[in-house]
């Protein structure tokens, strides 16, 4: 009873999408149609934190939150690279994560694309030159798309994913 009372009293609290980015939905829809054309299903993404400050992770997480809700467009985060079409890599690659990143890349079935998210993934950012850092992501595995920003906004990440899908081989027929 208490539960129903609370539901009634609180009402709807979700907010409308911020006015500043109306094209996000369009981008997401485009990802959906493209994935469906190329893969015949949702695009499966494996996220690898190669040593990031977690700023990028917060933005990626918000992709799956109630505002963007990327799952409805067939953007699907999976628990193993064995299931993935696309790797989303964040952060400068630290020494501890070098081998695991390489193993993850090897474990991902072909054809696959890699999106490096954030400035650190491209240039190592403020961590450049640290003894703990091996280098940028493309020093370890081949990268298809870089998404710049510190951190990049979810819309930028979506655009990066969209661009990366173009690099998948076209389906026959």
């Amino acid at each position: 009873m208490l539960l129903f009372y609370k539901i009634l009293r609180v009402g709807v609290v979700t907010e409308p999408l911020a006015l500043g980015e109306p094209d996000v939905i369009e981008v997401a829809r485009e990802v959906e149609t493209k994935a469906r054309r190329l893969l015949g299903r949702a695009v499966a993404i494996r996220e690898v934190d190669a040593g990031s400050c977690n700023g990028c992770e917060i933005e990626i997480t918000s992709l799956t939150g109630p505002v963007y809700d990327s799952e409805r467009f067939g953007i699907h985060f999976v628990a193993s690279p064995r299931h993935a079409d696309l790797l989303l890599v964040t952060g400068p690659v630290t020494r501890n994560m070098e081998v695991p990143l390489l193993k993850t890349y090897e474990a991902t079935p072909d054809p696959k694309v890699v999106v490096a998210v954030g400035d650190c993934a491209r240039t190592c950012g403020v961590f450049r030159g640290s003894y703990a850092v091996v280098g940028s992501v493309d020093a370890v595995i081949p990268v298809d798309v870089f998404v710049s920003g510190c951190p990049p906004e979810p819309a930028d990440i979506l655009r990066g994913i969209l661009t990366a899908l173009d690099r998948l081989p076209q389906r026959k027929g």
């Binding site: 193993s80 064995r82 081998v99 695991p100 990143l101 193993k103 993850t104 090897e106 474990a107 072909d110």
Partner: peptide, 14 residues
């Protein structure tokens, strides 16, 4: 049929 033989996936641990 292109085969790749790799390790069992163990979360990339060393």
């Amino acid at each position: 049929r292109r085969l790749r033989i790799g390790d069992t996936w163990g979360c990339g641990r060393v």
